[in-house]
C-alpha cells in the first residue's frame, strides 16, 4: 500500500472537491435569506415556502413525474424484451438492423432525436402533450434498459432455464419463475435509469411537449436563462436530496443482499 502517496491523496481531494463543491455551494445558498443569490444574508427556509406556493412549478413537477413513471415502466418492459431478443432469440431476419437500432439512440445527439420525433408527430398529426413525451422518452430509455438487462442475461447460467423446461414448465413459467427473479436486479436498475433519464431530460422534452405539458426541466431551463434565482436553488436542493437518498438507499440494500447471499452460501456449505 506504499503506492498510495501524497500525490494520490491530493488528486483525490482536489478531484472530489471539484465534483462536489458546486453542488454544496448551491445547497448552502438555497437557505439564503437574501433575494440577491450571491450575497449571504442569514439562514432562512423562505424560498422553500415560496416554491411550494408556485403553482407553475408544482404543475410541471406533476407532469414530469407522470411522464417518468409511464415512460420508465414501458421502457423497462420493451427494453427487457429487446434484451431477451438480442441475447436469446438467435438468428432472425433483420437482426443487425435491430441491434443497430438498440445501440444508436445511446450515442445519438439529443437534438437530433428530439427533432426527428417532433417531425414524426407532426407528420402523423398527433397533438403534442404528455403522450408524445412518454413515447419519446420510452424510445430512448428502452435502449439503456436493454443494455443493462442484456449484460445480466449474458452472464446468466442457461441450464437453470433448461432444467425448468425439462421438469415440465412452460416457457412463460420458466421465464416468470426462474429467469425473471435472477435478472430482477438488472431490471430494477434499468427502471431506475430510465426513470432518472426521463426526469432529467430537457432537450427531447422541449421538442416533443405541447404548451399544456411543460416538464420541470423545461421550466427550470427557461427560469435559469434569466440568471440565478433563489427558488431554483431551493428546487435544485430538493432534487439533489432525493437523488442522494435514493442512491445511498439502493447501494445499502444491494450491499445487504450481497452479504445475505454470502451467509446463505456459507450456511449451505457447512450443512
Amino acid at each position: 500500500m506504499n503506492r498510495f502517496s501524497w500525490f494520490n491523496a491530493t488528486s483525490l481531494t482536489l478531484g472530489f472537491a471539484f465534483l462536489y463543491l458546486p453542488m454544496v455551494i448551491l445547497v448552502i445558498y438555497s437557505f439564503n435569506e437574501s433575494k440577491l443569490v450571491t450575497v449571504w444574508a442569514g439562514f432562512s427556509t423562505r424560498w422553500y415556502g415560496e416554491l411550494l406556493q408556485n403553482d407553475a412549478f408544482l404543475d410541471a413537477a406533476w407532469v414530469t413525474l407522470r411522464v417518468a413513471v409511464f415512460s420508465s415502466t414501458l421502457a423497462t418492459v420493451l427494453g427487457t424484451m429487446a434484451a431477451y431478443v438480442l441475447v436469446r432469440a438467435g438468428r432472425f431476419p433483420g437482426r443487425t438492423l435491430f441491434s443497430g437500432m438498440i445501440y444508436a439512440p445511446l450515442v445519438m445527439p439529443e437534438v437530433i432525436t428530439g427533432l426527428s420525433l417532433l417531425l414524426l408527430f407532426i407528420g402523423i398529426g398527433l397533438d403534442r402533450g404528455i403522450l408524445t413525451i412518454v413515447l419519446a422518452h420510452t424510445t430512448f430509455s428502452m435502449c439503456y434498459v436493454s443494455v443493462v438487462v442484456s449484460s445480466r442475461l449474458v452472464s446468466f447460467d442457461r441450464s437453470l432455464e433448461e432444467a425448468a423446461l425439462d421438469l415440465g414448465a412452460t416457457p412463460f413459467d420458466a421465464f416468470r419463475l426462474v429467469t425473471l427473479p435472477i435478472i430482477a436486479p438488472a431490471v430494477i436498475s434499468g427502471w431506475l435509469l430510465a426513470f432518472t433519464l426521463s426526469l432529467d431530460d430537457l432537450v427531447i422534452a422541449s421538442f416533443t411537449s405541447g404548451p399544456s405539458s411543460t416538464t420541470l426541466p423545461i421550466k427550470i431551463f427557461s427560469a435559469v436563462r434569466l440568471g440565478v434565482s433563489p427558488e431554483i436553488n431551493a428546487l435544485s436542493t430538493i432534487l439533489i436530496g432525493i437523488v442522494t437518498i435514493g442512491v445511498i438507499t439502493a447501494s445499502l440494500v444491494s450491499k445487504r443482499a450481497v452479504i445475505r447471499r454470502q451467509r446463505e452460501e456459507q450456511a449451505a456449505f457447512q450443512t
Binding site: 483525490l12 472530489f16 465534483l19 462536489y20 458546486p22 453542488m23 455551494i25 448551491l26 445558498y29 443569490v37 450571491t38 432518472t196 426526469l199 432529467d200 430537457l202 426541466p217 427550470i220 431551463f221 435559469v224 440568471g227 440565478v228 431554483i232 436553488n233 435544485s236 432534487l239 439533489i240 437523488v243 442522494t244 435514493g246 442512491v247 445511498i248 447501494s251
Partner: peptide, 30 residues
Amino acid sequence: TLLMLVILPFWTSFLIRVYAWIGILSGEGY
C-alpha cells in the same frame, strides 16, 4: 465508497449541475 461518489453526480440532474456553475462564474459570483 469512492466509486459511489463518482457515480452519484451522474444520477443528479444534468441541468442542475450546469446551473450550479452560473452562480460560481458570474461577475458577482462566488
